[in-house]
């Protein structure tokens, strides 16, 4: 028997795995030792009465709690994701339509139906073409020129499109009567590289879109929503 034991011993020595401590373990133990000396110094000073050793959090944290937390996090993320996707889903089609309309307006030689920087020309132009009167603002003083207005068709209804220009950037502002889902405060997003803003003012909802960055669009939206403007 002894001989077989030796044989088995040799085999285990030669072939069984001897695990080596990972470097991260070595590092964290070293770090632990550096921090662990302070409470121990305290204990030493006060004499023999020592508190029970505290367990390190990582090891004493019950395994099931880890699992539970991980599971809870997973559920929370899924629920949030579903919520956002749902919320997004409603607007997403609309945003796509806004982007498409914006792109089309730039591709075709049909940016404006009425070309004027005068709101008193642009606003009356819509009368009789659509069943609402879109508010039109001149922002020339802020360096944003009104190019004109256009009739467009978004979300199965005719809408008013105002065209502004900042430097060489074209900004489309689509306006039509608001629905309850339109946000009161402007919301900004980036779709296919375009900055998009959506908000509600009075009975109208507004969508502004441009290839300017979100910050610049933010400025435009602030000017458009300013009540004291003429």
């Amino acid at each position: 028997m002894e001989q077989h034991d030796n044989e088995l011993s040799a085999l285990i020595k030669a072939k069984a795995k001897r695990y080596q401590a990972p470097a991260e373990l070595r590092n964290s133990i070293n770090a632990n030792l550096q921090t662990a000396q302070l409470p121990d110094a305290e204990v030493s000073r006060t004499g023999g009465a020592r508190p029970r050793p505290e367990q390190t959090r990582s090891a004493s944290w019950p395994q099931w709690l880890n699992l539970g937390l991980a599971f809870a996090c997973g559920v929370a993320v899924s629920v949030l994701a579903v919520f956002f996707l749902k919320a997004e889903g409603k607007d997403d089609g609309m945003t796509q339509a806004i982007v498409a309309s914006h792109v089309r307006s730039l591709m075709a030689a049909h940016l404006v139906d009425v070309e004027s920087s005068d709101r008193h020309t642009v606003k009356p132009w819509f009368t009789g073409k659509i069943d609402f009167a879109p508010p039109v603002k001149e922002l020339a003083a802020e360096g944003i020129s009104l190019v004109g207005g256009r009739l467009d068709y978004i979300g199965q209804r005719p809408v008013a499109a105002l065209v502004y220009r900042v430097k060489q950037h074209t900004i489309n502002v689509f306006i039509w009567p608001s629905t309850s889902t339109s946000p009161q405060d402007p919301q900004f997003a980036i779709h296919q590289g375009f900055s998009v803003a959506h908000w509600r003012a009075g009975e109208m909802q507004f969508w502004a879109i441009s290839d300017v960055n979100v910050g610049e669009l933010h400025t435009l939206v602030r000017l458009l929503t300013r009540t004291d403007a003429p």
Binding site: A21, L25, Q55, T56, S58, A59
Partner: peptide, 9 residues
């Protein structure tokens, strides 16, 4: 790793 860390402490 957890066990060794705790044991060393």
């Amino acid at each position: 790793q957890d066990a060794v860390q705790e044991a060393y402490l």
